[in-house]
């Protein structure tokens, strides 16, 4: 062992491509699975959530306007960058989730592979979900998938990296921008993922990462008029129904939480992309 004193990292929020502290100045202690201090994480406030929504809205035109091929390459780049910081993720996941080295490695591997899986989806969604409609008249009529807009994602509380990637990547692959609330007690891998995103050609504002309490941030995001959809996967027990009610005020698309957090190792299918995809149908006359 070297006797060099380590340079520790300050864990901050990720908003609009930058790493600010919470405007509130609040932090909270993050401990490992055994209760030992790991770091102080930023405790995101209502104002931070609003700033994140503004950033996500601002980034939407650019991200959704990219070609699907380009978006796919950017998401693939995320996988490449994660691979390079594999050891750091393993350490954080093992500490936060109390996993053995091999289990933590498996989780990180799966998280990297999940980005690869979704990266390959961006330029196939239109073919799978859209198509021509044979209307009974002289019209060319076609339907195509489009992203819903700004999606708030309450990331799983238990699976701090694989779970997080499993809920975030589909939202991005569909072309949405995201405001993510991390696991409250296990937020560190999310901040490291934010550092990966910042160096992966993902435009600033496309993903905004808030560490803190999904209970309070969830309320504000569910009622926010400029949020178009919300994934309640990580909503604290007993609060999902209330968040869904608040989301109804602006007719948000709501992805309800599973009864219990899944293992995240199954084939994800399309089920996490389609809730945040709209179908647009365009008509044009033929021959007149």
């Amino acid at each position: 062992m070297s006797d060099r004193l380590a340079v520790r990292k300050t864990y901050k929020l990720y908003v609009n491509g930058a790493f600010p502290r919470s405007e509130s100045g609040r932090t909270y202690e993050v401990a490992d699975a055994k209760g030992h201090f790991l770091a102080n994480a930023a405790w995101a406030s209502r104002k931070d959530a609003r700033d994140a929504v503004v950033a996500a809205r601002g980034a939407f035109a650019k991200w959704s306007g990219m070609t699907a091929y380009n978006r796919g390459q950017v998401l693939y780049r995320v996988a490449e960058m994660m691979e390079g910081r594999h050891a750091e993720f393993c350490e954080e996941v093992a500490a936060g989730e109390g996993l053995s080295g091999s289990k933590a490695r498996a989780a990180v591997d799966a998280a990297v592979d999940r980005w690869v899986w979704y990266a390959g989806w961006t330029d196939k969604l239109a073919a799978v979900l859209g198509g021509a409609n044979p209307v009974a008249g002289p019209y060319f009529d076609f339907s195509m998938p489009e992203p819903t807009g700004v999606v708030a994602v309450l990331a799983p509380q238990r699976s701090s990296l694989l779970g997080l990637v499993s809920v975030l990547a589909p939202v991005l692959a569909a072309g949405n921008t995201a405001v993510v609330v991390t696991s409250k007690e296990r937020p560190l891998p999310a901040v490291t993922l934010a550092e990966v995103l910042a160096t992966s050609d993902v435009p600033g504002g496309v993903v905004n990462v808030l560490t803190g309490d999904a209970e309070e941030l969830g309320t504000w995001l569910a009622e926010h008029a400029d949020v178009d959809g919300i994934d309640l996967t990580g909503a604290p027990a007993g609060r999902a129904m209330e968040f869904e009610r608040e989301a109804a005020g602006t007719v948000k698309r709501v992805l309800r939480p599973p009864a219990t957090e899944p293992e995240w190792t199954d084939d994800p299918g399309l089920a996490r992309m389609t809730p945040f995809i709209e179908t647009k149908t365009v008509w044009h006359p033929i021959g007149v």
Partner: peptide, 19 residues
């Protein structure tokens, strides 16, 4: 940002066409 866009026509409906 609309679910149905009619170009050079309007208010057309068909069972094969998602609305």
């Amino acid at each position: 940002r609309a679910g149905v866009v009619w170009a050079n026509t309007f208010n057309k409906f068909d069972p094969t066409s998602p609305f």
